[in-house]
Design a protein around this nucleic acid. Structure first.
Length: 108
DNA sequence: GTTGTGACACATT
DNA sequence: AAATGTGCCACAA
């Protein structure tokens, strides 16, 4: 499993409870902001449901996936609300729930 | 090997 | 402002 998926899953699993991340952000964390589509694909295959909080991943608009494969967008909304994320009509306030990724840069 | 599609993002009209 | 088109990368046939 040297594919990009692993990296995607790693980042997605890193999303703290009560926070949401966008596909572009995950892709950026992996190292390729253009992988946004591949990220969605990776979650689409969702090899480990229950382990990967894909419900915490939303698009750049903060909109939930229209084709949530778990039981409908309702389920995703429910899960997010259960985590404390306010979901409105399938939309979440990224300005408030946007996860702040920690870049493991050697910085300085 | 090429062609087409996709849980996205960005640019342009 | 919204809608449309294009670009990106990865995977299936």
């Amino acid at each position: 499993m040297d594919g990009v998926f692993a990296l995607v899953y790693e980042q997605v699993k890193r999303i703290p409870r009560g926070r949401v991340a966008t596909y572009g952000q995950i892709a950026a964390l992996i190292g390729n902001p253009r992988l946004s589509r591949a990220v969605g694909y990776a979650l689409h295959v969702n090899p480990e449901p229950g382990v990967i909080p894909c419900h915490r991943v939303v698009n750049r608009e903060g909109r939930l996936s229209p084709a949530f494969a778990f039981g409908g967008v309702n389920m995703q909304e429910k899960l997010l609300e259960d985590e404390g994320v306010r979901v409105e009509n399938g939309f979440v306030d990224l300005s408030q729930y946007r996860w702040e990724p920690i870049i493991e840069s050697s910085e300085e």
